[in-house]
């Protein structure tokens, strides 16, 4: 960090005291459609902020374009509302320049997986310490209802009156395939779960990728209701918990067992299988994470929700810092005047 930056960030330091969620709300009117899932995500994010122990003025939210990308305007901290798809790239530059900052990206299924897909996968493999929240509503909201890269095949929208012929991305698998070190999925209508996942994401050192199922009640209402609503949720969702067997169902009477590499649903009622036969989740197991994420669109399997993978791997910006440090130790702090006069020179009198 340059001395000018150091001076600036030392200038107004004063103890912040204990903050509340309210301190993280900006003075801007929130302008999402009434009933939009984004409200819950904003509320949960603001709620966990005081517990993270990160000074508010060192946090930055970066976004691209889309409904979700209005997010930074509503957070009372530094923020950039960028251009479509590029939030991850803007955030990467910011984090490299300023590893001291806590950098968050808010993106959507269109912004992050379509126009910004390239930057997302490269961020994930580089593993900068950036928190990526991808609001997945399986539709383009801001442009008024075209299908998105996560919309199901056959989806009828304004741009696909005969049904979409695209096969959808599974964001968790895409993230794992990009060598992400933290991959999770949560839902707008499960505030408690979301808070837990967001806190874990915040604490992870490296890129955290959190897919959040988000209801767009205007253009894709109910897309996730089978997983989010009380009456259907228990039978359609399996919550991943580290070290625990995969059990689900209203009566907690079903489980996931591995048959070879293939997960299958077994009943715990008929005495044939017990919890001991079930797949036990391990957040540190890369191979397992692929199998779990792959359950996503399988019709006979419950939807996996939770943390698929949490690994440690060196962060890009730290490695960059180390190289600079090592070069300085080896060659001494660079001297511009010396450099200009180095190599083959000659004097004319």
């Amino acid at each position: 960090m340059s001395t000018l930056v150091e001076e600036a960030i030392r200038a107004n330091l004063a103890p912040e005291g204990k903050l509340t969620a309210k301190d993280f709300q900006s003075d801007q009117d929130v302008r999402w459609c009434p009933g939009c899932g984004d409200y819950s995500i904003l509320a949960q994010t603001q709620r966990i902020m005081p517990d993270l122990g990160i000074p508010r003025h060192t946090m930055v939210f970066v976004s691209g374009i889309g409904c979700s990308s209005r997010f930074p305007y509503y957070m009372n901290m530094y923020g950039i509302h960028g251009i479509h798809g590029r939030a991850t790239a803007i955030a990467s530059g910011l984090k490299m320049a300023r590893p001291d900052l806590s950098v968050w990206v808010v993106t959507g299924d269109g912004d992050g997986l379509s126009i910004g897909g390239n930057h997302l996968i490269h961020l994930l493999r580089r593993n900068l310490d950036i928190k990526v929240l991808l609001f997945n509503n399986q539709i383009y909201g801001l442009t008024k209802g075209q299908y998105s890269p996560t919309s199901e095949t056959g989806k009828i929208t304004k741009s696909t009156p005969y049904g979409s012929i695209d096969y959808p991305f599974n964001p968790a698998s895409l993230a794992l395939g990009s060598s992400a070190t933290f991959v999770a999925r949560t839902m707008d209508r499960d505030p408690k779960h979301m808070q837990t996942v967001l806190k874990r994401a915040a604490g992870h050192q490296g890129t955290s990728f959190v897919e959040i199922y988000q209801n767009c009640n205007v253009f894709n209402d109910g897309a996730f209701f089978p997983f989010t609503e009380k009456d259907s949720k228990e039978d359609n969702v399996v919550f991943l918990e580290h070290g625990k067997p995969l059990i689900f169902g209203k009566e907690k009477d079903k489980g996931i067992r591995l048959n070879g590499f293939t997960p299958e649903v077994v009943s715990l009622k008929d005495g044939k299988y017990s919890a001991d036969d079930l797949l036990v989740h391990n957040e540190h197991d890369t191979t397992l994470s692929f199998i779990l994420a792959d359950m996503t669109y399988k019709p006979n399997l419950p939807r996996p929700i939770g943390i698929f993978l949490a690994l440690t791997r060196p962060c890009y910006e730290r490695e960059m810092q180390h190289q600079i440090q090592a070069a300085k130790e080896k060659r001494g702090d660079g001297d511009m005047k010396k450099l200009l006069n180095s190599g083959e020179t000659w004097v004319i009198n």
Partner: peptide, 26 residues
């Protein structure tokens, strides 16, 4: 050793947007 940070980005767009992000950071 001059503290220069060079980032070979994934594409031209990431080249410029990362630079802009860095500028935001000072």
């Amino acid at each position: 050793h001059f503290g220069v940070k060079t980032f070979q980005a994934e594409d031209e767009i990431a080249g410029v947007t990362s630079a802009l992000g860095a500028s935001f950071g000072g």
